[in-house]
Each structure stands twice: as structure tokens, then as C-alpha cells.
């Protein structure tokens, strides 16, 4: 009987936890806080701006099968002991109704580094900020499909937010490659 009660309580606790939702329009981290984390130990940081022209935007749209919004893109850069730590770029991707603001970092080896959810505006799905979900992106590159259910597992109850984060990571990888082609690491 005691075992049965314990099982029931555990089941209820698990289901309540999976049904938890996040508060609306939540700023989980500021850009500065997130940059300090993704470029931990950096001894110099700077930004490089890029406004893609129509041709560059068309090329990006063709690669991603998604339009690249007009406007300036800010690449956050960092160095430690003379070593390039890569790039970090913020991007907005629509979840189900509202955009989610992310910071995606890419290592000098063109692999995904830490990803952070900065602003979450949907009524549910804020669980995508959890480490367990975001760590799936570490080490991914443009060679990976970066698709839900293929190489990325969505958070239960936050499928659309998970899809948005995945899209944001894919977009930033393409932006870095477009601005810093492999032949030369600096423009």
C-alpha cells in the first residue's frame, strides 16, 4: 500500500512538473550577462557590425529557405590569450505567436557554443531556457540537420519554442559563415 501511494505521488509530481508554464514576457538574462557567460575568461571583447546588402540577404534566404530581415547584424567577438573565441549573435525567432530573443555563440571552429534565451514573450514554453535543452546544441555545425526529432529533442510542452531556438541556432551559423567565409576569418 505504501509503495502504491508513493508511486501515485511520484506520478502526480512528475505530471505537475511537466505541465508547468513560464511567466509571460520574461527577461531571463541581459545581453551583457549572457556575453560574460558565453565568452567566459575573455580578456578582450569587441563588436563588428554588418548590414547585408540585397544580394547577401538573397543568398542567406536561399540557404535558409527563410527571409533574412533587413538591418544591421552585430557580431560580438572575444579573445583570450590572443586566441579567437568566436562569435555571438542575437536573433529573434517566432515561437508560436511571439518572437524569442536568443544569444547564439559560435566557436572559432564554426561549432555552436553556449546558447542563451534572453527574452521570452510567449505564454508557455519558457522551459527552453533550461540547460538540458540548450546543451544539445553544443558542438553542432552547419553539417548537422538541426531539426526537431532528428538531432534535437524538443522540451515536452514547449515544442514551438524548441523549434524557434533550433531555427535561431541555424540562422546564426549561416550568418557567421556569410560574414566570415572560411577562407578568411576576418573581413
Amino acid at each position: 500500500m505504501r509503495t502504491l501511494c508513493t508511486c501515485l505521488l511520484l506520478a502526480i509530481a512528475f505530471m505537475s512538473a511537466t505541465a508547468a508554464t513560464a511567466a509571460e514576457h520574461h527577461v531571463y538574462q541581459t545581453l551583457d550577462e549572457a556575453l560574460r557567460e558565453v565568452f567566459a575568461g575573455a580578456d578582450s571583447t569587441w563588436t563588428e557590425n554588418w548590414t547585408p546588402d540585397d544580394d547577401a540577404r538573397a543568398a542567406l534566404a536561399a540557404q535558409l529557405a527563410a527571409p533574412q530581415p533587413p538591418g544591421e547584424i552585430v557580431f560580438h567577438r572575444a579573445r583570450r590569450d590572443g586566441r579567437d573565441l568566436g562569435w555571438a549573435v542575437t536573433t529573434d525567432e517566432i515561437g508560436l505567436h511571439e518572437p524569442i530573443t536568443l544569444l547564439v555563440s559560435v566557436t572559432a571552429g564554426r561549432e555552436v557554443g553556449p546558447v542563451r534565451v534572453l527574452v521570452f514573450r510567449e505564454s508557455r514554453g519558457g522551459e527552453v531556457r533550461r540547460k538540458r535543452f540548450l546543451e544539445q546544441f553544443l558542438g553542432k555545425s552547419r553539417a548537422d540537420p538541426l531539426r526537431l526529432t532528428r538531432d534535437i529533442d524538443a522540451v515536452t510542452g514547449a515544442t514551438y519554442s524548441s523549434r524557434a531556438v533550433t531555427a535561431g541556432v541555424k540562422r546564426v551559423l549561416a550568418l557567421v559563415d556569410a560574414r566570415y567565409p572560411l577562407a578568411r576569418s576576418t573581413p
Binding site: A65, P67, H97, Y160, A167
Partner: peptide, 22 residues
């Protein structure tokens, strides 16, 4: 089914995500 929406204006090449149905 949940109301998420995409649109292509070039016959299916480039797809833009739109805010979902309320």
C-alpha cells in the same frame, strides 16, 4: 494544427514564419 503559420511568396522557395492564429 496549433495555429503556427508559414508563408511563401515565391511559389515555395523562401518561407517566412508568421505569428500563429489566436
Amino acid at each position: 494544427a496549433a495555429g503556427d503559420l508559414v508563408v511563401s511568396r515565391d511559389g515555395g522557395g523562401v518561407w517566412e514564419s508568421l505569428p500563429g492564429l489566436p
